[in-house]
Simulated scan of single mutants.
Amino acid sequence: MIDFIRGQVAYHSLDAVIVEASGVGYRIFCPHPFYWKEGEMAQVFTHQVVREDSQNLYGFANTDERDLFRLLLEVSGIGPKVALAAIGAGSPRELVEAVQREDLRFLTKLPGVGKKTAQRLILELKDKLEKAGWTSLIRGAKDVVDTPGYTAQASQEAIDALMALGYNESEAQAAVHQAGEAFGEENPSVDEWIRKALQVSMKAK
């Protein structure tokens, strides 16, 4: 099993990123291929699916996305393409919360997921997510933004904005949290928060 690949991004396709490592170009199917820039060094966390007629690599920016992808594959009727599309349609937090709420409306909007598949997702995933620690992880992510001096709603908007700019969820949460600590007791606007979070993240790189 290939756990991750570290190398230089050679180029993209619409559904994959090609990473060169030790002279070999690996085509890795991703929910967000353009997260990685051409020419940069990247580490892609991977899951390998071996079948009689194919050997495919599926890649993710972080282990949370990959772990959730693996759990989705355990649901009957969910294959790699549908699982990858589900990961790409929203953040892991949104998907986990939808399963916890038994939100069929949200789940049936995912590519390739009808009502019956959505019901199986809830039935087969709810307990597994709890046992895997996802429920406490999601609660912890919410607590990150509940700091005196600013509102959870504004901080979540800032997180969403950073994710739209290409940050993964954990990076966006960390940057927004650090920006909130810098503001102290001030009550900044969302725009101010985004600017500060971008400054924090750039200094960290």
Rank of each mutant, 00 (worst) to 15 (best):
E185F: 09
T135L: 13
D64N: 05
Y26N: 01
G25P: 04
N187F: 05
Y11F: 14
T108G: 10
M1N: 07
A98E: 05
E124F: 03
I87D: 11
K128E: 06
T46H: 09
I87R: 02
A89G: 09
G133I: 07
A161Q: 01
S155M: 13
L107P: 15
R66N: 04
A179L: 02
N168T: 01
A98D: 04
F45C: 02
H32L: 14
E102Y: 03
G114E: 08
R195T: 12
D67S: 13
Q8V: 07
D15M: 01
V176R: 05
W36K: 02
M202K: 07
L110A: 12
T46W: 04
K196R: 14
D127V: 15
H177F: 08
K203P: 08
A16C: 07
A141H: 12
E52L: 08
G140D: 10
A152I: 04
A61H: 13
E171H: 11
K126Q: 07
Q119V: 14
R6L: 02
G114C: 06
A21L: 06
V24R: 00
V9T: 01
W193M: 15
E124K: 02
Q100P: 00
K196C: 09
D67I: 11
T135D: 02
L104F: 06
K203Y: 04
E192N: 11
A10I: 03
S189E: 11
Y35C: 05
G184E: 08
V24T: 13
R105G: 06
Q55I: 15
G166C: 02
M1H: 06
G59I: 02
T63E: 12
H177C: 01
A98H: 06
P188A: 13
K205C: 02
T135R: 09
A85K: 05
V145Q: 08
Q48C: 12
E171M: 12
A118W: 04
G77A: 04
L110G: 03
A174V: 12
M202G: 00
E38T: 00
E97N: 10
D67G: 08
D53Y: 04
L73N: 14
R195D: 03
A172T: 09
G133H: 03
V75F: 03
D191F: 05
A98I: 09
P92M: 03
G88R: 00
R51Y: 04
F60S: 09
P80Q: 09
K205W: 05
H47E: 05
K81E: 12
E97H: 07
A204N: 12
K109C: 04
C30S: 13
D191A: 15
Q8Y: 01
L162I: 14
L14R: 05
K196S: 10
V9I: 05
E181H: 13
A164E: 06
I78D: 11
Y167T: 06
P148H: 14
G23T: 09
A21K: 12
R101E: 15
A118C: 13
L162N: 12
L68V: 10
G166P: 00
I5N: 13
H47R: 06
L68C: 07
M41I: 02
A175E: 02
A16W: 05
Q173T: 08
R139T: 08
R93Q: 11
A175F: 05
Q153I: 14
D191E: 13
Q119N: 07
